[in-house]
Write a protein that binds this DNA or RNA. Structure first.
Lengths: 111, 111
DNA sequence: ATCGTTAATCGACGATAGTCGATGAAGGGA
DNA sequence: TCCCTTCATCGACTATCGTCGATTAACGAT
């Protein structure tokens, strides 16, 4: 479907890369996997206890995951509850999408 | 299917991350997309001409892509011909795989 | 109002990664 | 044999990233 002769535009390549960057870290993979196993939303403190890294580190990774809408946050009174965004999981690009030239899915779209 | 209570093992998380790391760079996305659009294998020189970065940089990225078997190389007399590894494209993990706790696909498996 | 809890932000540090230019190795042709 | 082409590797530089400890902000409870 995508039949331009030149390489992929740089801007589009960077959009694609930003998706994969979100899962290109072992700690973030652990956090995502953790949120998926618990069905219920988790507070930052629970994630910190289960992941074995510092609180500021967890907060940092959650921010990155939230920026691509991979996780959703619901601010409660004293704590923040994070959960997997199922819609974003399914719109996350695959390697086949890159190869087949599928347009980059927009992050804000899946919410 | 994966019902352990703790977080994903660190080693497995890093294996997953190494997959996504391979596509977590705009230049590599461009190279992959380029190889996919040309049906035929491409020499390094052709990729350099089309990608707009230096020859050593292209060579470096091709090495990374080859390490996860995403591209295959066939050394000819004077040049090296790179092409997409279709098998590896389809075994490349998706975000849903991570969420669903699917075991990490082994890179050497798809060849 | 004060204190304690929870989480986001800040600043710093070390490690990793991307890029380049230069060099080196392997092969083909004159 | 010598040169030229092609690509991989090396060394250096810079930018980005992951992590931590400390600080700050928001909120509840006493």
């Amino acid at each position: 479907m995508n039949e331009e002769k030149g390489p992929l535009a740089r801007a589009e390549a960077e959009e694609y890369a930003s998706w994969f960057k979100a899962l290109a870290d072992a700690t973030r993979i652990q956090i995502v996997s953790l949120l998926a196993r618990r069905r219920a939303p988790m507070s930052v403190g629970e994630i910190v206890a289960a992941s074995g890294v510092g609180q500021s580190t967890v907060s940092h990774h959650l921010k990155i995951l939230a920026e691509v809408r991979f996780v959703l946050v619901e601010r409660q009174a004293t704590s923040s509850l994070y959960r997997i965004n199922e819609a974003c999981v399914s719109c996350f690009p695959t390697a086949a999408d890159v190869v087949m030239g599928k347009p980059v899915p927009a992050a804000p779209t899946c919410e």
